[in-house]
Each structure stands twice: as structure tokens, then as C-alpha cells.
């Protein structure tokens, strides 16, 4: 009886720990939504900033982040999916494959600021792209490549082996088999994983700090060699570098909310796609 009571107290404590974590997450979201919503308006997302961000909107930052994401996707998605196809469909168990896997693990652990240094050294300076959308996108692409490879490989491996065997036995070549009977069924998993990676790229600040982001640039980019503003960097600047940081607090909250909505929207989209495709293919 005594033992039971003490056990129940411990259970209660563990539950308390879990739910305080949940509570904190909930409070952060609540705080940002509550303070961000009042300042959020159509003008805020569709206008240029004025007075170094103290007034007006954040259109250039939204466009900047979007163009960075498009660039990142164009580079990272094909590269990541093809790598995953190699690892799941072609790779033999040998030294070379082990090296690729080690490299992917290593890339996944490299801190984002180190990607920034790397992007600065290679893309901005050595290849002379300057601080530009191109340099920033390439840097972000390198950063999310491991995420895309790992999740895509998992999705490819989830396709039952029987489909591959059946297709090969019907005289399809290996590539025909992959194209018609492996890729289509793993697409949902690949897309889901990729969106999560892209969400990470959308919120990252450190890599673009050194490779693309402009402090204050109230116009839209013309080419991939232009600098742009970006949402996370804009929030950082407003919150820490702005001379009247306190006065622009509502704008900071609104910017944080837009960024949060973008990232959470991407995650939500990924979840919806996953559910939709799960209904379509079941095995």
C-alpha cells in the first residue's frame, strides 16, 4: 500500500514534467500569436518598410525568404532524392557506401553558422557570387541536404520489396522499376521529409547572415545575384539592432508571427500530404 502511494507520486511527477514542457511550448506560441496578431494586417505583409523598419511592412523580407526557399528547393531536392535513390536502390554494402553514410551523418551535425562560414568562403568569395540569393540558396541547400536524403531514403525503403521483384520479373529494367514502381509510392514520404527540411531552411538565420541577407533594402530583387532581406534576419535586426527596439515591439511580434506561420504552415502542409497519400497507397 505504501509502495503504491510513493509510486503514484512519482508517476505524477513525471507527468508534471511532461506537461510543463507542453505548457511552455503552448505559452510561447500563445505569447507570439497574442502580441503579433494586432499588428498583423494586409498592409504589413504587402508594403515596403519605411524608416529602417520602424514603419510600414515586410514585403521585401517575405519575397526574399521565398526566393531563397525556391533556390534551395531547386538545388537540394533533385540532389537529395537522387542520393536517396542511390542509397536505397543501388548501393552495395561496401566501403564507398559507408563513406557516403558517414558524410551524410557529418553534414547533419555541422552547425548552421559553420555552413554560413563555408558559404562565405566558397560561394560568396571564391566563386565570386557575392552576397546574393544564389550564394544564400546554395548554402541553405547544403544545410538541408542530409535531412532530405535521410527522409527520402526512409520513404523509398518503406516500399515493399515485392513491387520491385514483380516489376523486374516482368522484364522492366532497374530504372523503369524505380521510376514506375518505387518512386510513385514513396513520393508522399519524400515530399513530407523535404518540406520539413525546407521549413528548417526558412527559419534559419545564421547561414544567410553571412551569405545573402541585407540589413535594410526596401525593394524587390531583380536577379539571383541580388542581396535580399529575409524574415528571420529582419526579426533579428528589429529585435536587437534597431535604435528604438522597444517602440517597434509590435512589428517584431508581427514579424515573428509571420515567420512562425510560414514554418508551421509548411509543417502542417507536410502532415496533410502524408495523410492524403496514406489513403491512396496502402500495403
Amino acid at each position: 500500500m505504501r509502495r503504491q502511494r510513493s509510486e503514484q507520486i512519482i508517476y505524477l511527477l513525471i507527468r508534471l514534467v511532461m506537461y510543463s514542457i507542453v505548457l511552455v511550448i503552448g505559452y510561447i506560441l500563445f505569447d507570439i500569436i497574442r502580441n503579433g496578431l494586432p499588428a498583423l494586417s494586409w498592409e504589413f505583409v504587402s508594403e515596403y518598410p519605411r524608416k529602417s523598419g520602424a514603419e510600414g511592412g515586410i514585403l521585401p523580407a517575405i519575397v526574399g525568404t521565398m526566393s531563397l526557399l525556391v533556390g534551395t528547393i531547386i538545388v537540394a531536392l533533385p540532389l537529395g532524392i537522387c542520393s536517396a535513390i542511390y542509397l536505397s536502390e543501388y548501393a552495395e554494402q561496401n566501403r564507398f557506401t559507408a563513406m557516403i553514410r558517414l558524410a551524410i551523418i557529418t553534414l547533419a551535425g555541422v552547425p548552421s553558422i559553420v555552413y554560413g562560414l563555408f558559404g562565405l568562403g566558397l560561394f560568396v568569395l571564391f566563386l565570386n557570387f557575392g552576397t546574393s540569393i544564389l550564394a544564400g540558396s546554395l548554402t541553405l541547400a547544403c544545410m538541408i541536404l542530409p535531412t532530405i536524403i535521410v527522409s527520402s531514403e526512409e520513404a523509398l525503403r518503406a516500399v515493399p520489396r515485392g513491387y520491385r521483384d514483380a516489376s523486374l520479373a516482368l522484364g522492366a529494367t532497374k530504372w523503369e522499376t524505380i521510376r514506375t514502381n518505387v518512386l510513385p509510392y514513396s513520393l508522399s514520404g519524400i515530399i513530407t521529409g523535404s518540406i520539413l527540411g525546407i521549413g528548417r531552411a526558412a527559419g534559419e538565420t545564421a547561414p544567410i547572415l553571412l551569405t545573402v541577407a541585407a540589413f535594410y533594402l526596401p525593394r524587390l530583387p531583380n536577379s539571383i545575384f541580388d542581396q535580399v532581406m529575409a524574415l528571420p534576419y529582419h526579426l533579428y535586426i528589429l529585435a536587437t539592432q534597431h535604435p528604438e527596439a522597444d517602440k517597434v515591439l509590435p512589428l517584431q511580434y508581427a514579424t515573428a508571427l509571420v515567420l512562425l506561420l510560414l514554418v508551421l504552415g509548411l509543417s502542417l502542409g507536410a502532415i496533410i500530404i502524408r495523410i492524403h497519400f496514406r489513403k491512396k497507397y496502402r500495403w
Binding site: I25, L196, T205, L235, Y236, L259, L260, V263, L264
Partner: peptide, 16 residues
């Protein structure tokens, strides 16, 4: 919910 926490950008957490 825990995954949600992972997807909050670090700059937003920093701001908070």
C-alpha cells in the same frame, strides 16, 4: 507537439 517545438525557428525562440 514535441515536433512542433523542433520546428520553431531559433530566431523566434531568441526573440521570445
Amino acid at each position: 507537439f514535441i515536433e512542433l517545438l523542433a520546428s520553431i525557428p531559433s530566431v523566434v525562440l531568441g526573440f521570445f
